[in-house]
Design a protein around this nucleic acid. Structure first.
Lengths: 209, 209, 209, 209
DNA sequence: AGTTAAACGAGACGGTACGTCTGGTCTTATT
DNA sequence: AATAAGACCAGACGTACCGTCTCGTTTAACT
């Protein structure tokens, strides 16, 4: 799991001043703020981050050798695991799974980081892989599980491509995250509307025959 | 329209060597290639672009004072207008409109630029606005027109939010563009499948009542 | 001799527009003015000279391939030969020879060029050699001739080093040229005073024994 | 006095790495060497100096914002004050004062810098003024004092222009410095000969009447 | 309490890239 | 063919960072 930051504990501890934990978070906050303000992952430098955090360069470099490692810890901050939906019904379960995503999309700093990460995946392969393993994959599995159960329950057609359905459900939120048009998004209402429309379809009933 | 590049024609022409048009395109190609290779809009420098284009710095700065202006011309390159769908039927028209988008998504260089532009919208507001006016808005109108006609024809329900339907149709492609997972996308097949699923819905028929 | 400029006559003259002789002198004047204004020989560029002369770069490069060649022609402009003194008397002859030098020292443009040339002798060896052969050597010979005649006539001691006497006579003017403190120099009066003092000496008569 | 270089001490010293004093002198040495090798004051760039000194550009710019300021410190290096002559006799005192100058003339680096400075006085007015105040003026006063005392003692005529005598004494050395023909100069012997000749005069004794 | 060791801010340092400017060459249109 | 205008490449210059390093200072653990 990503939960545990990789800030290296210095080996043997026999004396000396302690690291200020406030510095750790000040730096990570600085990254989140700057990225949310439009900075690029590549464009950010440890120096600039230090300045924004009100901390000496030294204090940043002491903790992370590279931006890559720092960003791993930043990414860990974003992931906020949720319990699996309770299985009340397919419609509600889908909405619940989507909510997890929608909440992150609405969080400006989180969505900014993820948007930046997508745009620069090639530059940060390790970071991008981690993003997939820790954030994307679990959600996808949760979604798939709900969909499969929906078919079993007879609440979903059994002749549809579930992967496509999942993509259809998730994409509106992802697209908003990608474009940054996150303002008018109401996590509760909009996830509900998306689920409804995907389940019901937009075509006229006759048209289905 | 964006079609006409803004490369400034120097005022009065009475003598002097002519600008090499090959240089213009070499520079724009360089930008497209570098962005497709993972570069950031902010991260690119006119110097690096010149190097990649095999052109002197001077020749770049002579044409564009800022990256912003250069990118405007790059963006113009991407926009490839398509005729409106012929109106054979809602299903076919929707697929046709989506195709325009899907083709751009599949084009690595185009989608890379747009992905980068989305990620750095804050840094290039003028560019982003232009992107909306010239590329996004026309497609959206085309899509809306088709949908409205579908309702009039009775091929679409009249109780659905057409904006949401449009978003549902478009988002899978946008999301792929955003994440760069563009490899397995088949413009013809996949647009068809998306349209079908959105029209028909994924829910079991009984469930609709 | 330096008198004949080395401006290359274009080989065969078969037709086409004629060179504008005004351009030649405009360029040389430009050099003189710029050097007098403080420019360095190395620091001047043909481009800057063209601009100052109000002439296209082309027109300069067509005439002189290098600064070196151009400066040779500039130097030729400075040398203004004078007839040998008439031999009325040593005192008058010395003053006459010094006058030639003093007049050049007073000419701001000439002295500026020579001062610059001295400072950058290492960079323009050919030019510096030419300067010696064409300007310095003739004057020195003239001076030596007058001094030798003075000894023969019994107007000068026969136990002094004539080279040193010559140096003593010439140096005040050269030093002024070198330092640029040329303002308060009156060629007629000051050469006279220098000659008088050198002949007579500053020591009290008794002191000589 | 000029003795104290103007390398700016950053105001408050509370921390940070110390400047390497070896870097200071390496840079100044570089300037002296390059000017002695024929470089122009204007032509030198802080970049070239840094390269020659084997130091990063940064380290130069950190110390001096402009060439002007750097050259002030270079000039300070050249000035080497001497005690006033002891007053044994006018002849000896004059020789002693001239020696100070002759030694500087013989020092290739010092004379190169001063020659360059004279040639480019217009470009570096502040530097040139300083040169006068710190180097020229004191020597001139020393010289004048000796001469005046010579008159009082009856060792010099009382009807000569002492300023002219001073100029006559000093100019041969200055002229050599200006022309760079410094090789065959023997400070001890030549100053002596100059003083002797100026005191005694070159004219035949009868000629004075 | 004194010693030791590390955290911390400040800033020197070498290196690299950027955008500007200029120099000399080449090309085009005009005279 | 000479000229003016200007595109073009090459390279230097001064600036701005970046990441490393070395200081002097402060804080905490361990004698």
């Amino acid at each position: 799991m990503i939960q545990e930051p990789v800030v290296q504990e210095p080996a043997a501890r026999q004396g000396g001043r302690q690291r200020d934990p406030a510095t750790d978070s000040a730096i990570i906050e600085a990254v989140l703020d700057m990225v949310a303000a439009g900075a690029t992952l590549t464009g950010l430098s440890l120096v600039a981050i230090a300045k924004q955090a009100g901390v000496s360069r030294n204090s940043v470099y002491r903790r992370w050798k590279t931006k890559d490692e720092l960003y791993l810890d930043v990414l860990a901050t974003i992931n906020e695991p949720r319990p699996a939906p309770d299985g009340a019904g397919t419609r509600e379960d889908l909405a619940a799974v989507l909510r997890t995503l929608a909440d992150r999309v609405v969080d400006v700093r989180a969505s900014s980081v993820l948007r930046a990460l997508n745009a620069e995946a090639a530059t940060f392969p390790r970071l991008h892989r981690r993003y997939f393993e820790e954030i994307v994959a679990p959600r996808r599995e949760a979604m798939t599980a709900v969909l499969r159960r929906g078919v079993e329950r007879g609440e979903l057609r059994d002749d549809v491509d579930l992967d496509l359905v999942a993509e259809l459900l998730v994409s509106p939120l992802l697209a908003r995250m990608a474009s940054g048009s996150t303002d008018h998004l109401d996590p509760v209402r909009d996830t509900r509307r998306i689920v409804d429309l995907v389940l019901r379809g937009a075509g006229a009933p006759d048209d289905d025959a």
